[in-house]
Design a protein around this nucleic acid. Sequence first.
DNA 1: ACGTATGATTTAAC
DNA 2: GTTAAATCATACGT
Length: 342
Amino acid sequence: MDDQTRMLAGLAGLGGLSQGDVGDPDSVRKQLGQPQQDIGDILQQIMAITDESLDEAQARKHALNCHRMKPALFSVLCEIKEKTVLSIRGIQDEDPPDPQIMRLDNMLLAEGVSGPEKGGGSAAAAAAAAAAGGSPGADGGIEHSDYRAKLAQIRQIYHSELEKYEQACSEFTNHVMNLLREQSRTRPISPKEIERMVAIIHRKFSSIQMQLKQSTCEAVMILRSRFLDARRKRRNFNKQATEVLNEYFYSHLSNPYPSEEAKEELAKKCAITVSQVSNWFGNKRIRYKKNIGKFQEEANLYAVKTAVDAASVSAQASQANSPATPNSGGYPAPCYTPDGRL
DNA sequence: ACGTATGATTTAAC
DNA sequence: GTTAAATCATACGT
């Protein structure tokens, strides 16, 4: 910091000098068409600074600060600068709430990354415990807990990074502010300008934060596609469950739409969820309708089965000896029509 | 390895 | 909300 003020003071002191004979800068200048000061001059000045002693610079600075015209000059310079800078800057309204960042924030909140801390690392443990506890019907409890664990990991990284950025931002802001305040004793820097600078820094850092948020979102998306889509890592229902469902379907072929209660009962019988029952019936209806012929055999089988069951309940003795051979083809299977209500 | 079966998801209509 | 229909992605049998 002091080096810089020293340098500035040095430059100010040497500003008027022009020394011609440093190499051959003229040719360069002509080639490049630079009307301003020679690069050579600037180099010279910089070199000269290093020759100065600290005391010399300090003395020069002090002299400058104590000059009787200094305050007046300073305020005039400030004013000029304020005008020009402001006119250049134009109207730069404060932070308009970036829709992009809001979107990201919402998403992170929805995914529970930036939301209220739900126990952090213990969330995974709790989920694992819940899965181990064996909640009946919990589909993919173990995988879900795995997902949670990974999500918690992402959340942790996200928060630590965010904290790092925030700390760096405030540190940097402080540093710059101190620097500017210090320099404002020798350079025309108004408080407004400092404010503006701080705003610029904050904008920069918030753009970094947005990158962080964006990449976190991406990570969550990838995780989702890996795990939640892994929900699709389906397992076929067991034979008994399929049997129960098919029995219901074929015995209600004229109107295969189980009520909510029926669904619940079926779900309980098959040890699956109600929505799984709904899925099954949805799939079954459409697939049956699409190709009734293909399902004819199955339909006969279940029709016979239910018939036999009913018969065996009503007249066990008489039916006991006749093993119901599925007389495939001959059985007039009830035909489910799309408009139902046969 | 490949085709089919099957549970889950998505889309659109109601 | 439910549903049909299309579609996805895997399981399963050959």
